[in-house]
């Protein structure tokens, strides 16, 4: 539009504005005031206030930093614009922190946009907590929000849980293999000593008795030589089974050597242990194995000793076992298939 016609149009609007003021018509005053203002700016080549305001808001939202001088004075002097600029600045800082993984920031700005971002922050913080719980061994944690990510997280935790269980099972299997005699299923000598040492310590602390039974299969070498190792292994298994069957759950037994076994009976006097040994002896005596048509009879010799709990004659479990071994040696020398109780360093009785 040519400058003259712009001037004429502006004059008409100024007249109308005067009329509206004189006529006390606020709505028309508002309308013509805005038009006069806009036209006057247009004549000098400036944009309308609305255009300037929109551009300023765009700049504030979409640019990282907007210099004060880049915002027209008519906009920058508006307090609402400045509040908006401040809030958008806070939101941008908050979003940048979120993008950098900093979940500790506080956003004082209220309203929907800030609320949605705070909700996102809240979800991430909860997810962080759940991940911490998983790292501490709580594999029951599941995420029920955040869509595809939740599915992946849950799958990961389930697989971790399965892997952990498989590892625990494997560890338990190897632990058992390390402490068990594979032929009989009884604890091996090393594990027996571990448990027996703990029981002995407890017996000493509480001044309680305990007894040891040692047994050795009679003429085992002959059985092996005459009938082969398979039968020999079977004999060992049957003797172990009879020994275990005669003991209580609280008793501890183990394979001590080739054909030698040991049992520890907590809180048991030597007399009671002798009775147990006698029952096992009888039970073994009754085993009959058919080997290629010939019947093999098995017997075993027993030595029994006691830590009486009231005195400190024995300092270690090895000393108690050594007494039982001496008694076993005497049982062998006295003709086998019998129970001998250790009764002092030299005197023994059967």
């Amino acid at each position: 539009m040519a400058f003259d016609s712009q001037k004429e149009s502006l004059s008409i609007k100024i007249d109308k504005l005067r009329e509206a003021i004189d006529g006390n018509n606020p709505e028309e005053v508002n309308t013509y005031a805005y038009q006069v203002f806009t036209d006057a700016l247009a004549m000098t080549g400036d944009k309308s206030p609305m255009e300037m305001a929109v551009k300023a808001v765009y700049d504030v939202i979409l640019q990282k930093q907007v210099k004060d001088q880049e915002i027209p004075g008519i906009v920058s002097s508006d307090k609402n614009f400045n509040k908006l600029r401040e809030d958008i600045g806070s939101i941008c800082e908050f979003m940048l922190a979120l993008a950098n993984g900093d979940l500790s920031q506080r956003l004082a700005t209220k309203g929907y946009l800030a609320g949605v971002l705070k909700m996102f922050q809240s979800h991430l913080r909860n997810l962080t907590w759940q991940t911490q719980m998983v790292s501490r061994g709580d594999f029951t944690q599941r995420v029920h929000f955040m869509g595809e990510f939740a599915k992946s997280f849950n799958l990961m935790v389930e697989q971790l849980d399965q892997a952990r269980k498989a590892q625990a099972e494997s560890e338990e299997k190897y632990r058992l293999l390390a402490i068990t005699d594979p032929l009989t299923g009884l604890p091996n000598r090393r594990h027996f000593f571990d448990v027996a040492t703990a029981e002995f310590t407890r017996a000493r602390r509480y001044e309680k008795p305990l007894s040891i039974i040692m047994t050795d299969i009679d003429h085992f070498k002959k059985i092996n030589d005459n009938h082969g190792h398979q039968i020999g292994d079977l004999v060992i298994q049957l003797v172990a089974e009879r020994l275990k069957k005669a003991l209580r759950e609280t008793d501890v037994s183990g394979r001590y050597g080739g054909e030698e076994f040991v049992a520890l009976l907590p809180e048991t006097s030597v007399r009671d242990a002798q009775a147990v040994a006698e029952r096992v002896r009888e039970s073994i005596e009754n085993i009959g194995i058919d080997a290629d048509g010939s019947l093999i009879n098995i017997t075993s010799s027993f030595g029994v000793s006691e830590y009486d709990g009231a005195n400190y004659k024995h300092q270690t479990i090895e000393e108690v076992i050594d007494d039982a071994d001496k008694a076993l040696y005497k049982a062998k020398n006295d003709g086998r298939n019998r129970v001998v109780v250790f009764n002092g360093s030299t005197t023994m009785k059967s």
């Binding site: 609320g115 705070k118 809240s122």
Partner: peptide
């Protein structure tokens, strides 16, 4: 309560 639905937040915190 530091954030609330009533202040425009989607989550109460």
């Amino acid at each position: 309560e530091v954030d609330c639905w009533c202040t425009g937040d989607r989550t109460c915190r």
